[in-house]
Amino acid sequence: MDPNNLIAVEGLARSFPGPKGAEPVTVFEDLWFAAARGEFVCLIGHSGCGKSTILNILAGIDQPSEGAVIVDGKEATGPSLDRAVVFQSHALMPWMTTIQNIAFAVRSRWPEWPRAKIREHCQTYIDMVHLTGAEDKKPAHLSGGMRQRVGIARALAIEPRIMLLDEPFSALDALTRGSLQDEVLDICAKTNQTTFMITHDIDEALLLADRILLMTNGPRARIAEIVVNTLPKGRTRTDMHRHDNYYPLRNHLIEFLVRRSEALREMVLDVDPRKPPVVFPRADCSAQTPAVVHGATA
């Protein structure tokens, strides 16, 4: 295994028992992928390909039927403070204020810390997600975007090695989503945070991700290919669409989601599931035939 990989998934499969007497349903199988230190990896696929299940397995909340999750060279079998999750539905405790929600996580991470130190630590992360002034508000008195900020601050505050994001912006309106994406991009760049995100928003993936994993439709979903984001680092939401590589990338992803994700499900892929094809959609290649590197290390 590549020592640069902080988290790797080897031969992951998950099946659920079918309705009475029926065969068990395999949602996905034979998944192999990895994320290097400081890398931002996005996973895109249609509903039903088991995206959230994959994230739950990475978080240790769910168990795979086959395969293993390797974190820093060791198999991870349960939840861990190494991996923080930002849930789709923010999952804040409604009876706790902003700072109490974050302090609950911080105290779990460092139980021996005195009260004042926990407070100070929480404040740092509250300031980081621009929630200064909302420390003592309960989630019911916060807007959707602010709640998700608390969720992000809670995840960051335990200084995880890997942050797992489960469609964190999907319930937000477009404007709020945009500003939160900018902030996550900014924070991840500054802290060199290794991040794995589930999404179905192509522009979100293009803005945030270094690599994008494309999944075929379920059941028996697999990783069809890995798209390397060819947009330059330091891209912003407002200028990334002016880059020459933007449309080839975007078209490639749309083409995949609209057509190929279903078509590839039926086909027997003539590729090693451990090494899905890696593509680099670029302006100098035609968008229909992006550069494909077979057998490149995923």
Binding site: N56, S80, S89, A91, M93
Partner: peptide, 14 residues
């Protein structure tokens, strides 16, 4: 009790 809240506690190793 909402699954989400229990999952938060789980991922925080509470």
């Amino acid at each position: 009790v909402r699954r989400d809240w229990l999952n938060v506690a789980k991922t925080l190793e509470v």
